[in-house]
Amino acid sequence: MEGTKKRVFASSISPTMVFLFLGFAVLLILPMASATRFTVGGNMGWTTNFNYTTWAKGKHFYNGDWLFFVYDRNQQNVLEVNKTDYEACNSDHPLHNWTTGAGRDVVPLNVTRHYYFISGKGFCFGGMKIAVHVENLPPPPKASPIKSFAPTLSSKGHIFLMPIVFAIGAAWDSFIYLW
């Protein structure tokens, strides 16, 4: 009896609803896919005797990225300061205290500008400071014109597209059947 109810429910969902659901899921995932979460210091984390200037060198920080600070919550902290206080390791007047008490703090980089972070309590003098420049994402490259001999979706592209469509449909059908 219960299996009949499940099958009736699954057959009452139209293909349009399936495509709408998948479309919304893709739209929700896309913005998250472009952001990067950087663990400050990599495997070393936010600690003393580490050169964060060298760690940040060569990395591009874009609007929407995140800095993830991992540190000893009983000793260190994460303070955002201005450039003058960064250079002097002055933690008396931070712009923002990102310390949550867990030793796992995430800082959103959602404004295009320079960010300066230090650890107070004297740890800044041991190297616990980092400056990053956040910039906007570069525009995507312009597509080259399609040449007449290049394959398009109307020809060979269906070879790759159709298995994906069938796999999504099979997964959806299994999900509905088990639900």
Rank of each mutant, 00 (worst) to 15 (best):
T84W: 01
A150P: 06
P141L: 14
F38A: 09
Y177A: 15
P108Q: 02
H114A: 10
T99C: 03
P151M: 03
G58A: 04
H96I: 10
L79P: 09
M128Y: 02
I159M: 06
G169P: 08
A35Y: 11
T4I: 09
H158E: 11
E80F: 07
I118M: 05
S154F: 12
A102D: 09
S154C: 06
F50K: 07
V70G: 08
K83W: 00
D65K: 08
Y86K: 04
T99K: 00
L153R: 07
I176S: 14
T48K: 11
H158G: 15
P139K: 11
R104M: 02
K129C: 07
P145A: 12
N82W: 05
I13N: 07
N136I: 02
H60Q: 10
D92Q: 11
S14L: 09
A167H: 01
K83M: 08
S34F: 11
T36C: 05
T99L: 05
G127R: 01
N49D: 11
T112W: 00
E2M: 13
V18M: 15
S11R: 11
A170S: 15
K5S: 12
F149H: 14
N51A: 06
Y115R: 06
K5A: 15
S34A: 14
L95W: 01
V106Y: 09
I118W: 07
L20K: 07
A167Q: 04
K156S: 13
L79A: 04
H93K: 11
G122T: 05
V78R: 00
L178P: 02
G45F: 02
W98R: 00
P140Q: 04
L95I: 10
Y86T: 01
F125P: 01
Y86F: 15
E87P: 01
Y177H: 14
N110G: 04
G64K: 09
G127H: 00
L161T: 07
C124Q: 00
L137D: 02
D65Y: 05
K147C: 13
N136E: 10
I29S: 11
D85I: 03
L95H: 01
G169D: 12
I168Y: 06
N77R: 07
H158L: 12
P15A: 14
R104P: 05
N90F: 04
L28K: 10
K156D: 12
V111H: 08
H133M: 04
A35V: 15
V107P: 06
T36A: 09
Y116R: 00
F123Y: 13
E80V: 13
L109M: 04
W55I: 08
T47M: 11
L137R: 14
Y71A: 10
W46H: 04
I159D: 02
G23K: 05
N97I: 07
H158A: 14
L30Y: 13
I118Y: 04
M128D: 03
F160M: 05
V8A: 10
F166I: 14
W66T: 08
V132L: 02
V70Q: 15
G122H: 01
